[in-house]
Design a protein around this nucleic acid. Structure first.
Lengths: 197, 197
DNA sequence: GAATACATACCAACCGGTTGGTATTTTTGT
DNA sequence: ACAAAAATACCAACCGGTTGGTATGTATTC
């Protein structure tokens, strides 16, 4: 849906409150009247956009090459490398639509927040199986859960995005993801490879 | 300044774009006319608020007890514990004004973004000396810089705040800060103490 | 023929900012 | 020491552009 893609692009650039339905509509090649034929309110659009975001990113990550390694820990590390590698270019090309949405609507629009929450948490969930497998192999008695580590990866990414936005560029954000990689390596007792940070 | 405190509170709750100068003014006990006597625009208010935020948080952290330990690594760990302990209650009571501001204004208002950037990066900077000291003691040849680890702590915190906002509560955010603590312990070869996560 | 997918035209509320004025405090001239 | 002058801190009312949303009409598709 072109309207949702335009909405996602606008929110990533300017945030939810600052995106104008007029502009979303015209970017999608529709007038405002046409927009309100598809969505009864801006809020409904945001919820739909969050679901579309889940769908689009879901396909992107499903098709990504980080699933190839045989070892589950290697897959987790490959995921982190993949996330680090796609941080680049303009800020609005790599930051997370759902995180941005959650930040602005957490108090004012619970339906939007819930949709954003689902997008983030469901994506984190896709990592837990591999983390759990790696954990039961290398450190079954560790005092942390696969679930919490999976969500932590998302927290680091969301934080890195804010650093990138504040800094005006992706370099420092990538450094943070590098620290996340080293953390996972250390957690599972793998010798960190040297990679300047 | 009452106006800046009201502005900070409003931005933390609703974000920058959604805060109305009318409301900021009346929360500060002033009319809109009075507001524009002190600030020539909403943007100027945001920049001033970011500087006040730096000042207020600067004093808070300077007076905090995490500086007491003699060992620099203990101070860094105490800092992380301190940050984790103050994550609680309502979301807008513990989240970062500067991070919220940066997210919304990174493209549209460079002056605001720069002020937010300074607030975050300068605060990170207060950690580098201790991290550097701990590093040159335990792992002088490690392939990461004190500076990047300091900024990483802020990235994790900013990310934890987004998780808290999306989740509607601080528990999962605290878990992430727990992972950050474990990372620092592992980095410096200190045996992690068991603390369920 | 009726549901879909739009467009045009419009509106009421809102919002950042302005204007012109008043009360109060501070500075200055003598 | 004290009044004139100037700067400060505010307010009530207003302005014009913007914004989310509506009402109504029309071409296309099934």
């Amino acid at each position: 849906m072109r309207i949702l893609d335009a909405a996602i692009a606008s929110v990533r650039q300017k945030g939810y409150a600052a995106t104008r339905v007029d502009e979303v509509a015209s970017c999608a090649g529709v007038t405002k009247g046409g927009f309100f034929h598809h969505f009864s309110s801006k809020e409904e659009m945001a919820v739909a956009a969050a679901m579309r975001w889940s769908e689009v990113t879901g396909q992107l990550f499903e098709a990504a090459p980080y699933h190839l390694p045989d070892d589950p820990l290697d897959r987790v590390l490959a995921y982190i490398d993949f996330r680090r590698d796609i941080i680049g270019g303009q800020t609005d090309e790599f930051t997370c639509f759902a995180g941005t949405l959650a930040q602005e609507t957490h108090l004012s629009a619970p339906t939007i927040r819930d949709a954003a929450r689902a997008s983030i948490f469901d994506h984190a969930q896709t990592l837990t199986a591999d983390i759990e497998a790696a954990k039961s192999r290398s450190c079954p008695d560790a005092d942390w859960t696969a679930d919490s580590l999976a969500l932590h990866t998302q927290a680091v990414l969301q934080g890195a995005f804010i650093i990138a936005k504040a800094d005006g560029g992706p370099e420092r954000a990538r450094e943070s993801v590098g620290h996340l990689r080293r953390y996972v390596e250390l957690l599972f007792g793998r010798r960190p490879k040297s990679s300047a940070n």
